[in-house]
Amino acid sequence: MKIQTKYHGEIELNEKDIWHFEKGIPGFEDEKQFTVLSFEDNDIFFVLQSVNNFSLGFIISNPFSFFKEYEIKLDDAVTYALELEKPEDSMVYVILTVKDPFSESTANLQAPLVFNLINNKAKQIILNDYSRKQPVSAAAVKE
């Protein structure tokens, strides 16, 4: 299928590349299907693009690229909802608030996105131990 995107224009998308958020993302509960798109020559930042709303695209990144001590523990309700059997079957991203200059950008460590690589289910979870606005300025961006 073809979809319009916020940052990549029109793209061809396969069903296997669609992530299903059963309850949407907080604040965007009606948006249940997303895809993860990469930027050319960049393996740190990605776009979580809504399949149905071309103007909805979040900049995301692997939090462990920036925050080596970051740790999440998934409770039983999350692992059940995602049908997640093993931690290695998952990947985690966080949504960034990108600012100009980039050094003022922040990562939402309080609400990571957890993806089940086996069944394409995904969910944003809430962690009470972290900040919604953690600066990413200490991160080294690969060129």
Rank of each mutant, 00 (worst) to 15 (best):
residue 1 M to D: 05
residue 1 M to V: 11
residue 4 Q to R: 09
residue 6 K to H: 08
residue 7 Y to Q: 07
residue 8 H to P: 04
residue 8 H to Q: 11
residue 9 G to I: 03
residue 9 G to H: 02
residue 9 G to A: 00
residue 10 E to C: 00
residue 13 L to E: 10
residue 13 L to D: 09
residue 14 N to L: 11
residue 15 E to I: 06
residue 16 K to N: 11
residue 16 K to R: 06
residue 17 D to Q: 15
residue 17 D to M: 06
residue 18 I to A: 07
residue 21 F to S: 08
residue 21 F to H: 04
residue 22 E to H: 13
residue 23 K to Y: 14
residue 23 K to A: 13
residue 24 G to R: 07
residue 24 G to L: 08
residue 25 I to Q: 14
residue 30 D to L: 07
residue 30 D to P: 00
residue 31 E to M: 14
residue 32 K to M: 14
residue 32 K to E: 15
residue 33 Q to M: 14
residue 34 F to T: 15
residue 35 T to L: 12
residue 37 L to H: 11
residue 37 L to Y: 13
residue 38 S to F: 11
residue 39 F to G: 09
residue 40 E to I: 14
residue 40 E to L: 15
residue 41 D to G: 13
residue 41 D to R: 15
residue 42 N to R: 07
residue 43 D to K: 12
residue 43 D to P: 02
residue 44 I to R: 12
residue 48 L to E: 09
residue 50 S to N: 04
residue 52 N to Y: 07
residue 52 N to V: 07
residue 52 N to K: 13
residue 53 N to A: 14
residue 53 N to M: 14
residue 55 S to G: 03
residue 55 S to W: 03
residue 56 L to Q: 11
residue 56 L to M: 13
residue 58 F to L: 02
residue 59 I to N: 00
residue 61 S to F: 01
residue 65 S to G: 02
residue 65 S to L: 15
residue 69 E to A: 12
residue 72 I to T: 15
residue 73 K to T: 13
residue 73 K to N: 08
residue 73 K to H: 09
residue 74 L to N: 04
residue 74 L to I: 05
residue 74 L to P: 04
residue 77 A to E: 03
residue 78 V to E: 05
residue 80 Y to R: 10
residue 80 Y to T: 13
residue 80 Y to S: 14
residue 81 A to F: 01
residue 81 A to I: 00
residue 82 L to F: 07
residue 82 L to Q: 04
residue 83 E to K: 13
residue 83 E to R: 06
residue 83 E to M: 02
residue 87 P to I: 09
residue 87 P to D: 07
residue 88 E to H: 03
residue 88 E to M: 00
residue 91 M to N: 06
residue 91 M to T: 12
residue 92 V to K: 05
residue 96 L to D: 03
residue 97 T to L: 01
residue 97 T to E: 03
residue 99 K to M: 08
residue 100 D to G: 02
residue 104 E to C: 02
residue 107 A to P: 03
residue 109 L to E: 05
residue 112 P to E: 09
residue 113 L to G: 14
residue 113 L to Q: 15
residue 113 L to A: 09
residue 114 V to P: 10
residue 117 L to Q: 14
residue 118 I to M: 10
residue 119 N to C: 09
residue 120 N to C: 04
residue 121 K to R: 15
residue 122 A to V: 05
residue 124 Q to H: 11
residue 126 I to S: 04
residue 126 I to H: 05
residue 126 I to F: 11
residue 127 L to V: 00
residue 128 N to G: 15
residue 128 N to P: 01
residue 129 D to E: 13
residue 129 D to S: 10
residue 129 D to T: 11
residue 130 Y to S: 01
residue 130 Y to W: 04
residue 130 Y to D: 03
residue 131 S to L: 12
residue 133 K to M: 10
residue 134 Q to W: 12
residue 135 P to Q: 06
residue 135 P to T: 05
residue 135 P to N: 09
residue 136 V to T: 07
residue 136 V to I: 15
residue 136 V to F: 05
residue 136 V to A: 05
residue 137 S to N: 13
residue 137 S to T: 08
residue 140 A to K: 15
residue 142 K to R: 11
residue 143 E to D: 13
residue 143 E to V: 13
residue 143 E to A: 14
